[in-house]
Each structure stands twice: as C-alpha cells, then as structure tokens.
Amino acid sequence: MMRLMGAMVLAALALLSADARAHDLQHTIRRGDAVVITVTFPDGMPFSFESFELFAESDSIPFQVGRSDAQGRIVFLPDSARTCRVRAFAHDGHGIDITFATEGWEALPDAQRAPLSRLTRILVGVALVFGLFGVLVLIFKGRT
C-alpha cells in the first residue's frame, strides 16, 4: 500500500513538474551590437512612445514592431539584413519612412552622416528663394 501511494505521489510530481516546465520562460541577458535610430523634432524634443515598424531588405512583413522609447530611440539588432526600412508614425501625421544600410556607419566621415546643419540648409533655402526671384527680375528686365 505504501509503495502504491509513493508511486502515485511520484507520478503526480512528475506530471506537475512537466506542466510547470511548459509554462516556464527562460531568458538570457547579454550585450549586443544594436542599431540605434534617434528620432527628434527639429527643436530637439524626442519622438517619444510612438509606434514603429521595421522591415528587413524588401520584406513586406515587419520583423519588429514596437514603440520608440522616452528619448525617441528605436533600437534593434539587424541580424543578417544589410538594409532595413523603418517607418514610425505619430497620430498627428508626424513620422519617418527611411531605408538605410545597417553596416558601415562607423567608417563614414562625419560630413557624410549629416551633410549640412539645419541652419545652413535654412540659409541655402532662403538664398535659393531670393535667387529664383532674382531670375524673375532679370526676365522682367529682359522684356522691357
């Protein structure tokens, strides 16, 4: 009788432990080389907690979806994809849709990463506007 009861207890424990294993999640923590995309408004305000979709190469199904963090960062590990596309959306229509290479950024000179500062581009834009209207004046002068 005692043997039978012992066998039953062992069988119940075995079943319970199998059941517990099925609900268990394992995890590992390690550092990796992640790609970090920081999205901000022009005044530096972070594009925080907005949804994004990340696509590898030309896939139509995203391999990662989520939200940017409090500092407007989208962080991911690119695996084998050499180019990625990220789309980030806010409810009010702000957002980005960019395709970029996941490797080789360290080798790029600073000038290639950000060709012109924002202020320079504003000045270039204003100069272009005046230049185009200057051409208009010349056309008018040519007529008279």
């Binding site: 506007v129 005046f130 209207f133 208009l136 004046v137 008018f140 002068k141 008279t144």
Partner: peptide
Amino acid sequence: EETIPLLAVMTA
C-alpha cells in the same frame, strides 16, 4: 517688376 522683391521676401 517692382512687386517681385516684396514677394521674394514674403516667400522667404
């Protein structure tokens, strides 16, 4: 012709 400068300024 005389209004082009003002238009240029306002466009800028």
